[in-house]
Structure formats: C-alpha cells, structure tokens
C-alpha cells in the first residue's frame, strides 16, 4: 500500500508503519517525534485532498 501510494506521487515520509506495544512508552514517543519531524519537513499536503464541498 505504501509502495503504491509512493508510486503515484505521495511522498514516502507521509506514511509510517510501526509496531508498538502498550508497554513501550519511550518507543511510542520516539516514533511520534520522528513521524512529526518527517511530515513537518515535507510541509502541508495538497495531494488527495478534495476541495469541492
């Protein structure tokens, strides 16, 4: 799924997969930080966003 999204032009860093146990608080914080940094670096997403309404 990630590969196909990337293939059609969604930046790879916008989609993250992770496996975190409820006991792994530090890992959770670590992953969330990394995800937000990666997404922040890319800036706002305009793709697959519907404007009509």
């Amino acid at each position: 799924m990630g590969n196909l999204l990337e293939h059609m032009g969604i930046e790879k860093d916008r989609l993250h997969f992770s496996w975190i146990s409820s006991a792994e608080a530090t890992k959770f914080v670590d992953v969330v930080t990394k995800v937000s940094e990666a997404v922040n670096a890319l800036g706002p997403n305009h793709k697959l966003v519907k404007n009509a309404g």
């Binding site: 990337e6 293939h7 059609m8 032009g9 969604i10 790879k12």
Partner: peptide, 14 residues
C-alpha cells in the same frame, strides 16, 4: 521509468 520520477512528477503523471 515511473519509479525514477520525483514525487511531484509521479503525481502529475497519474
């Protein structure tokens, strides 16, 4: 050929 494009090029291609 498509994989070699950057994200925006890919998006525009599709």
């Amino acid at each position: 050929a498509i994989e070699a494009m950057d994200a925006d090029e890919k998006w525009n291609h599709f």
